[in-house]
């Protein structure tokens, strides 16, 4: 395959994934300008390493892993440490569930309040929520993208959803005051 064919193949496979890449970067970086930079950087990286991609394997997971790593590199170790969930916290059991009636939660929450709640999550939790709920990835794919074991995917997702529920419930109670 010559350079031009490689470029064509690359564009055919990866450009349709831009909406997924942008959504992930937008949630990880939290602003549009940085997200756009990260998408561009991710495509350049992916092009550089396109030779390592094996046809027939999961292209979306392969590319989202690059996107995710590009964002984490940009966020930097220092910034990331502040945002990462401590390991002992991940191992904790899910505390008080005490759910409010789900119907009232659905009625009260707006798009903006849900977005704010997702943005308030620690980056590790946000990542799995976005990959699962917004991108529809399987646990196995999330594990491949994030480089974490399946069990960790499951526990992070459980804690993230619980935190989201609490955040949205607090908002609901606040709205009612």
């Amino acid at each position: 395959m010559n350079d031009e064919q490689t470029r064509t193949r690359f564009e055919t496979l990866l450009l349709p994934l831009m909406k997924d890449a942008y959504n992930l970067t937008r949630w990880l970086m939290k602003n549009q300008e940085d997200a756009e930079d990260m998408v561009q950087e991710s495509y350049l990286r992916a092009y550089r390493f396109f030779g390592t991609f094996h046809e027939g394997t999961n292209c979306r997971a392969w590319f989202l892993r690059i996107v995710r790593n590009t964002c984490y590199t940009a966020l930097g170790d220092h910034d990331l440490k502040q945002k990462q969930v401590p390991l002992d916290s991940e191992a904790d059991e899910i505390e008080d569930t005490s759910p409010l009636p789900s119907v009232s939660l659905s009625k009260k929450a707006t798009v903006e309040s849900v977005r704010e709640a997702i943005a308030a999550l620690p980056v590790d939790f946000r990542e799995v929520v976005v990959l699962r709920e917004l991108e529809g990835l399987s646990y196995k794919e999330i594990s491949a993208v994030s480089g974490i074991p399946l069990g960790t995917v499951m526990s992070r997702l459980a804690r993230a959803r619980h935190q989201l529920y609490l955040l949205l419930s607090d908002r609901k109670q606040h709205d009612q005051l």
Partner: peptide
Amino acid sequence: ESRKAVGALLHNPQIRF
């Protein structure tokens, strides 16, 4: 039910950027 409620909110296509 609470998990499903959160899921329903997140599955709104408008949440995506």
